[in-house]
């Protein structure tokens, strides 16, 4: 077994545009579930809206890359409104079902051949970063940067710096919101919305604002992801939503840095397992085939999710008293 390359790949997984994208989406989930108590199971849909909104704006409407990104964010606001208006007045579990359904509707709409000229159907979209796009806005001169497993060419560096900047701004924003009186109302709604309503707060408006802000974070995650890979409908599946939830709960739902750290831990662990399980299978230590070893990784994710929720619901970084689950 090549421990060197396994270690190298795992360490490289610590900082990738993908991790930054997932951390952003998890931050959005923290806003939704951790702070506002909204059971959003459609975060993959928000990511898809951001990514497609960006790519389609550039490819079909010829907008500059930054305007395309703004369009992606704007589309997520509209998506939040469409989803929130019918469901935010209802009990929480309805929101869970509607958000998961809405995300699936979106994915099927992006996947169908009916809109292929715009959405690329199953092939997805690509090429929107080139020729005058995001990639050309790269301020870094060509060359290799970094050290050891963290060696990047100028393109990857630009993606990373961009992603890190967006993530930093989003984290700061979430922190500023949650320490304010606005955050107090939102947390109150998480605990008991009728009580907050009885105090004269427009609960619906606050929930909608929280849904929109978390949705924007999700969309930004999709956009950051889209800067580094193609936009493909196969990415924004329900499983992705569940993985993001796992990362959120791992870090601690009602914390500011928990979602970011949870994402890093989750995806680094994934990278590690992706490397080590097939290697173990190959060297005969695990009596399974290579494909089975890859599957085993997801089995472990499922078991891990169950164990966290049962034994450490506040997450790794959450306050023990601050159980995030309201009875």
């Amino acid at each position: 077994m090549d421990w060197g390359s396994i270690l190298n790949n795992t360490l490289a997984g610590l900082l990738t545009p993908t991790i930054l994208a997932f951390a952003l989406a998890t931050l959005g989930l923290a806003m939704h579930f951790g702070f506002a108590g909204l059971l959003n199971f459609g975060i993959a849909g928000f990511m898809a809206v951001g990514a497609y909104g960006y790519a389609i704006s550039v490819l079909t409407f010829g907008l500059p890359w930054w305007a395309g990104m703004i369009m992606g964010v704007a589309a997520s606001v509209v998506f939040a409104l469409i989803m929130g208006i019918p469901t935010l007045r209802l009990r929480g579990d309805y929101l869970a079902i509607v958000t998961i359904a809405a995300a699936e509707i979106l994915r099927l709409l992006f996947l169908t051949t009916a809109f292929e000229p715009v959405t690329g159907s199953a092939d997805g979209l690509f090429g929107y970063n080139n020729s005058g796009g995001f990639a050309d806005a790269n301020p870094f001169p060509p060359g290799d940067y970094g050290w050891g497993p963290w060696t990047y060419n100028e393109q990857t560096l630009w993606m990373l710096v961009f992603g890190l900047m967006v993530l930093a701004v989003a984290t700061l924003l979430l922190w500023a919101l949650m320490r304010s009186p606005w955050g107090r109302v939102v947390k109150g709604i998480r605990e008991d919305e009728d009580a907050v309503r009885a105090l004269g707060k427009n609960v619906f408006a606050y929930k909608m604002q929280a849904l929109i802000i978390g949705g924007i974070f999700g969309a930004l995650g999709g956009i950051v992801l889209a800067t580094s890979t193609n936009v493909s409908p196969g990415v924004y599946v329900t499983s992705l939503t569940f993985f993001l939830w796992t990362a959120l709960l791992l870090g601690g739902a009602a914390t500011i840095f928990g979602p970011v750290l949870g994402s890093i831990i989750f995806w680094v662990l994934q990278a590690f397992l992706t490397n080590i399980l097939p290697a173990l299978a190959e060297s005969g230590i695990l009596p399974v085939s290579g494909i089975q070893a890859a599957t085993l990784r997801y089995v472990l994710v499922g078991i891990g999710l169950m164990l966290i929720v049962i034994y450490r619901p506040q997450g790794i970084f959450g306050d023990k008293r601050e159980m995030t689950f309201v009875k």
């Binding site: 500023a176 304010s180 606005w182 107090r184 947390k187 009580a195």
Partner: peptide, 27 residues
Amino acid sequence: KALSLLTVLENMKLGAKNQTGEKLLNS
């Protein structure tokens, strides 16, 4: 309906009306 995971003081402050900081942009 006490808001369980807010502190007692936060519960109280939440009650006050017309708070500037409860508007999204002001916050």
